[in-house]
Design a binder for these strands. Sequence first.
DNA 1: TGTATATATGACTATATGGTTATTAAGTCT
DNA 2: AGACTTAATAACCATATAGTCATATATACA
Lengths: 108, 108
Amino acid sequence: MPGKALTPDQLLHVAERFKALAEPSRLDILQALKAGERNVGEILEKTGLGQANASKHLRVLHAAGFVERRKEGVSTYYRLADNDVFKLCELMCGRLEKEAHTRKKLFA
Amino acid sequence: MPGKALTPDQLLHVAERFKALAEPSRLDILQALKAGERNVGEILEKTGLGQANASKHLRVLHAAGFVERRKEGVSTYYRLADNDVFKLCELMCGRLEKEAHTRKKLFA
DNA sequence: TGTATATATGACTATATGGTTATTAAGTCT
DNA sequence: AGACTTAATAACCATATAGTCATATATACA
């Protein structure tokens, strides 16, 4: 039975995780990490985000468990914790495509 | 190749969908709809949300395509648009369980 | 030690949004 | 028509947060 109701506390935790993915900048960062590990400077370059801003986004992603990090000298290297992120995004993208398709049919 | 980079516009849309799920109250509403179609009054009773508040949450969920609605007389009945929501939530819950497990090991 | 570099953090502003109360709109009933 | 019910909307407040600037921390290097 894949359907036990979640407690308010669990709902809060799940919502928190979704919130980490509910920001275009953070999704962009995750995309930048898809090819592999990158340090903050490389992430800035790839995404065009400001340094402080990106640092905060990375903290959120790390707190939510989507990225892991590793210090090397003065740099911090971030990488995806796993590929759940893309499973989630692909599901969402699938929905968007389906929507687009429906909209197209409406206008046809 | 399941890995085309998303455009900023697409990132925005995906983030918007995640944002719809990034609120405990909305997840609670979705849970309440898991058993089947319900009108707003029933949703209020099940979730304990205020009427205006729930109405706004329902609008967000509808705009994001997670629920569909049907008017019957003076009532509005809402239902889940599909079960993607639960695929998404189960993925997140799986992550939480894994985290909990890791934490437990740390304290062991 | 002093300087440069990379990242994190704190302070601040502007905006978005969750929750509440009051009101509106639409349907039902007598 | 008038009273009642259900849901949506508007106005409002309080809080959260994305973005930016300035500063702190930490490592490397001369």
